[in-house]
Computed example of a mutant assay.
Amino acid sequence: MKILSLTAAGLLALTPAAAAQTTTPPPLPTWLNLSVYSGHPGEKVSLTVACEGEASPITTKALRVTAPLDRNAEGHQPWALFGESVVAAVAPGTYPVSVRCARKPLTVHFTVLAAKPRPGQVKVLPHGAPRTGDGSAS
């Protein structure tokens, strides 16, 4: 009789309801990731969002989106969205970067650094005309 009750208990554990509970994967985590978290105006920043649901566009003053969030065209990583941006020409400082995944807000922070001087750019501007004389002393 002990064998029969153990067998019945084992069969109950394998009922469809019990099997469904053990094989349903947990929901994937959601996150927003940037390729870098600080940069100078004009530099590129890649964006990745883990989101199984619907995602909103990226909102921020720090980045100018050049390629909106989209899923991989070949179906790789169907839970992920990828986008591209460049650092905006805004005042140096730290700005929020946000997206909504299935109405859940995801936010990270990006630091805009001061613009880099261009090569050969004069750091101090000269004042007035050069003092070469007017030619009357010759």
Rank of each mutant, 00 (worst) to 15 (best):
A17M: 09
G10R: 07
A67H: 11
R100D: 05
L113D: 03
A91I: 02
G133M: 04
T30Y: 04
T66I: 06
E52A: 15
N33M: 10
A91Y: 03
A80D: 04
T107F: 01
S35P: 09
E52W: 05
L113M: 12
F82D: 04
L47W: 05
T24I: 05
T94N: 10
G128T: 03
A19I: 14
A8Y: 07
G42E: 10
P130K: 02
V65A: 08
V99F: 01
P27F: 10
F110I: 07
G120N: 08
N72K: 15
L106R: 03
P29A: 12
A67I: 12
L63T: 06
I58E: 03
K123M: 02
T132Y: 00
K61W: 00
P130M: 03
K61N: 06
P78D: 10
R64D: 10
R71A: 11
A129E: 00
A20R: 15
T48M: 05
W79T: 13
S85R: 07
G75A: 10
G128N: 12
V90N: 00
A73M: 08
L12Y: 01
K44R: 15
V87C: 03
T107L: 04
Q121T: 05
P25M: 15
L28G: 14
V124D: 02
C51R: 03
L6P: 03
P78N: 10
S38W: 04
A67Q: 15
K116G: 05
P126M: 00
P25C: 14
Q21P: 02
A102S: 14
L106M: 05
R64W: 01
T15Y: 00
A55I: 00
S38C: 09
L11E: 00
T60K: 03
A129M: 08
R131Y: 00
C51M: 08
P26K: 13
V122S: 05
A102H: 05
H127K: 09
S85N: 07
H109T: 09
A67C: 01
V99A: 07
T94W: 10
A89H: 09
G93N: 06
V90W: 01
E52H: 09
P126L: 00
Y37Q: 15
P57K: 12
V87A: 03
W31I: 00
T132V: 04
T15N: 10
T22C: 01
S46A: 11
N33I: 09
P41G: 04
P96R: 11
A8D: 04
F82R: 09
T66C: 09
F82V: 03
V45D: 01
A9R: 10
E54V: 08
P105C: 06
S46C: 01
T7A: 15
P57W: 06
G93E: 06
H109Y: 13
G42W: 11
R131M: 01
Q21R: 14
S56Q: 11
Q21G: 14
T111V: 07
E43L: 00
V124N: 06
A9E: 09
G75D: 09
L69Y: 08
A91E: 12
A13D: 04
E52D: 15
A13F: 11
P25S: 14
N72I: 12
L125T: 07
V112T: 02
G133L: 01
P96E: 13
A62R: 06
A73H: 04
R118H: 06
V108D: 13
L125M: 12
V90T: 04
C51V: 07
